[in-house]
């Protein structure tokens, strides 16, 4: 069984008027099925309002399903008694780097999670050290988060989650507010944790180039999963991606255009090396 199993997951937002009567119902997540195996690197693509962030908040039990079930590490998120252990096992990193750092010193912030779950003092220190080293921020442990770059702040946020020793990390658009350097930094860190520590990663993003190295990709639109497959399978459907207004990388786009113009180039080109190879073979 997978570490995350969503079955016909539905989430509805109720908009109420001043008297508390329901004005309208918006279905943000619409019968989504998802199965993630331990150790996988999964990406969920989609533009704003596609329901991808709402889905993410379910995995951390910040939101509960209106219909359907969601199991995280075998535990049902809708059972209240499971809440803490689910949050401990499925850590979450958010979009805005400033609004998720609680403490004024890096190491104290990383220690915040372990403190909350009652880890003994000495172990907190070893966990903080391990977590900060795993994201390459150990030498900044006594710095103020305000002096760090966006990418560094996000790495501190990831360390804060790592210190809780989770089985899986959900990154909810962690790069949307960063510059290109910061974006690379964060994605690289996520891959490293996946590879070296075996942490399951769920990356939510609207940047296509960030999902190229994932094991599996889901594309969401209007609350439903509209495409799923390996990156190559997804990237070979350029027209569909364009229809969902996703940002197809230039090389993939160019390869597709050339193929349509009659050249002999395989579908689903991911990198420029691949295109070069296809052109010069």
């Amino acid at each position: 069984m997978g570490i995350i199993e969503a079955k016909d997951l539905v989430h509805e937002y109720y908009r109420r008027d001043e008297e508390g009567n329901v004005e309208s119902i918006e279905t943000a997540v619409d019968h989504v099925n998802l199965s993630v195996q331990p150790g996988q690197f999964i990406s969920i693509l989609g533009h704003n309002g596609s329901g991808k962030s709402t889905l993410a908040k379910h995995i951390n039990a910040l939101l509960l399903p209106t219909e359907g079930t969601l199991l995280v590490d075998g535990k049902d998120t809708s059972v209240e008694a499971n809440e803490l252990s689910i949050r401990k096992n499925a850590g979450m990193v958010f979009q805005n780097p400033d609004n998720q750092i609680i403490a004024s010193v890096v190491e104290e912030d990383v220690g915040f999670g372990p403190e909350n779950i009652g880890v003994p003092t000495e172990e907190i220190w070893t966990r903080v050290e391990k977590a900060l080293k795993s994201v390459g921020m150990w030498e900044y442990r006594t710095h103020s988060p305000n002096r760090l770059s966006g990418g560094q702040k996000q790495r501190v946020a990831i360390a804060g989650v790592m210190a809780m020793e989770p089985k899986c990390i959900i990154l909810d658009e962690p790069t949307a507010m960063l510059d290109p350097d910061g974006r690379k930094e964060v994605i690289k860190t996520a891959h490293e944790l996946n590879r070296t520590k075996g942490v399951t990663i769920i990356l939510i993003t609207h940047y296509m180039e960030e999902v190229v190295d994932s094991d599996y990709v889901y594309v969401m639109e209007k609350g439903s999963v509209v495409m799923k497959g390996t990156p190559r399978e997804i990237f070979s459907q350029v027209d569909a991606l364009k229809q969902y207004r996703l940002d197809v990388p230039q090389v993939t786009l160019l390869a597709d255009e050339l193929r349509k113009a009659g050249m002999d180039i395989p579908a689903g080109i991911l990198t420029r090396e691949e295109l070069l190879e296809a052109l010069c073979h």
Partner: peptide, 27 residues
């Protein structure tokens, strides 16, 4: 207000549930 909202969510996601059962990193 937006920041407060975000922060509350982030704290909850990191298992914050008040002072009960909390340990200290720097007692």
């Amino acid at each position: 207000f937006r920041r407060a909202n975000d922060l509350a969510l982030a704290m909850e996601a990191r298992c914050y549930h008040g002072g009960e059962g909390r340990t200290k990193m720097k007692p």
